[in-house]
Nucleic acid binder design. Structure first.
Lengths: 136, 136
DNA sequence: CGCTAAATGAATATGATTTCCACTATCGTT
DNA sequence: AACGATAGTGGAAATCATATTCATTTAGCG
């Protein structure tokens, strides 16, 4: 059973490949629309619908990190690490750093336990200005 | 200069009052649409546009907590505490608890400093099942 | 009371994401 | 290599939350 395994039969299509290539070369977080634009820029002919579909599947599979920008738009990026992690993003230039947050996880568990909750998920996003943009 | 101060002259309108009343009586987080619906249910005649406008202003003023549900929709609730805090929300019944997260803040600052970032904001949302719903 | 800027809200616009559905392409099987 | 079942594709149209427009109404100062 391959990593992307089980019933989810996935065919190797031109579009899936092109998308994977783009995701592999982009560094920061990008919206579906931006990714679609990049695809066109490269001369690839892929429908916006298809881009959305793939991004959705990939993120469900845990192959993409997703966050929401201030406007509620969903941004995607290929995961660098397998392990659970959070993000630190520069508001100015979009640079992002993955940070592991064992501390946060532990805190979350403790807080949940105290409130009688069973934590199943948590979101932690940090944003600010990176050293380059923060010269104020 | 009042707390909500400066140039932002705010008139005491029927709509503003009705909205405040509803926000005061609702316990959990609600979307603009739900709040609007509740207003109508009470026989108040307030336009959806007005609801959105007020919610936006109130949250900018720090009088409302806002979070985004899984679908990207914005939910609002009147703050209980003045201090900065985070939320623990039950996925099943929507019950939410405010939790203070000094630990998280400190962690955030440390992580940011290490990456050369100046943290200006952070989002932390915890979700799971409360004791009542978690009987599994 | 009279006035004027602020507030309102119906209608319309926006913009991301989803759904529809007819058409196409992949790949296991002959 | 051709075949065919079926997953994949993508343009158009639908959704849906939220923003904007603008003519009309209203709060509250003088």
């Amino acid at each position: 059973m391959p990593a992307w395994g089980r019933g989810t039969r996935v065919r190797g299509t031109r579009q899936a490949g092109a998308l994977a290539a783009v995701l592999g070369s982009l560094t920061g977080f990008n919206s579906a629309q931006q990714i679609h634009a990049e695809l066109r820029r490269r001369g690839e002919r892929v429908g916006l619908t298809t881009v959305y579909r793939h991004l959705q599947v990939l993120s469900e599979d845990g192959q993409l990190d997703t966050i929401r920008d201030a406007g509620g738009e969903t941004l995607y990026r290929r995961c660098r690490s397998e392990a659970h992690h959070h993000h630190l993003i520069c508001r100015q230039c979009g640079t992002s750093v993955e940070v592991e947050g064992r501390v946060v996880e532990q805190w979350a568990e403790k807080v949940a336990a105290e409130a009688g909750f069973t934590v199943m998920d948590h979101t932690v996003e940090l944003s600010g200005l990176c050293s380059r943009c923060g010269g104020s």
